[in-house]
Structure formats: C-alpha cells, structure tokens
C-alpha cells in the first residue's frame, strides 16, 4: 500500500469519528424529542427525518457509498424506486375504496336481483 493511499485512509478516519459523533447526537435528539409534545404528526415526522439522516450518514460514509461506482448507484436507484412504488401504491390502493353507490329510489333492473327472494 503506497503512502498516498495510507494518507487518504487517515483522512477518512477523521470523517468516521465525525460521523460517529453525529449519529450519537442524532440518537439523543430522537429520545429528547420524544419527550416533547410537537403533536402526533410532528413527533413522527421529526423522528423519521432524523432516522433518514442517520441512515444516510451510515450508508454514505461507513459503507463508502459517497465514493462508490456507477453500477452500484444504478442498482440502488432502481431498488429505491421499486421500494417507493411498493409502499406508495399499496397505501394508495388501501385508501381508495369504491364510492358508496347511493340508492335513489329507482328499482334495480329485474335481472339483477331475483325479486321474489326478498320477503
């Protein structure tokens, strides 16, 4: 391993420590915030935002994603897209149920319901 390489790694070490501290701070904020009442939606979104930031830090620096090669990005972009698709479309489908058909007093067509079955 050449010197330049070793120098790069040493520079990375400082970044790692910085990220480490940031992660700990993030955790503390999450816990602290859960004690403060920002409203139901407010608490959840803040917790989620911090969680996403933490995940980004881990993936970006600890897992070297910031300096990764193009094929990896391509794979992950598609994965992220399909993940969002899975979540968004499922939630959409679950919340979009058919509108209630209101009966307006008109008799249903004769063949639709055998009338004599109704007492």
């Amino acid at each position: 391993m050449d010197d330049k390489h070793a120098h790069d790694i040493k520079k990375h070490l400082k970044v790692y420590i910085g990220v480490f501290v940031a992660l700990l701070v993030g955790t503390i904020i999450t816990v602290a915030v859960s004690r403060v009442n920002l409203g139901h939606a407010g608490n959840i979104s803040l917790a989620l935002i911090i969680a996403v930031l933490k995940a980004a830090l881990v993936a970006g620096f600890f897992m070297h994603l910031v300096s990764e090669k193009k094929p990896i990005y391509t794979i992950l972009v598609f994965t992220a897209f399909f993940f969002v698709g899975l979540m968004a479309l499922t939630i959409w489908a679950m919340n979009d149920s058919p509108e209630q058909t209101t009966t307006t007093g008109q008799a249903p067509p004769a063949h639709a319901a055998p009338a004599h079955h109704v007492p």
């Binding site: 598609f78 399909f82 698709g85 899975l86 479309l89 959409w92 489908a93 979009d96 149920s97 058919p98 509108e99």
Partner: peptide
C-alpha cells in the same frame, strides 16, 4: 421495469377504487 407496478390487476375483485384501478 413495468412488471413491478402492475401487480394489483390480480386484485380487481377486492373492490378497488376507480382511481387506483385506472392506474
């Protein structure tokens, strides 16, 4: 690519809303 976003056409019978069914 598209095969990931067509799945609910197996589920029309579950009583989907018109918007998501159109999608």
């Amino acid at each position: 690519f598209l095969s990931f976003i067509v799945w609910a056409h197996h589920m029309y019978l579950t009583g989907m809303g018109t918007k998501i069914a159109t999608f």
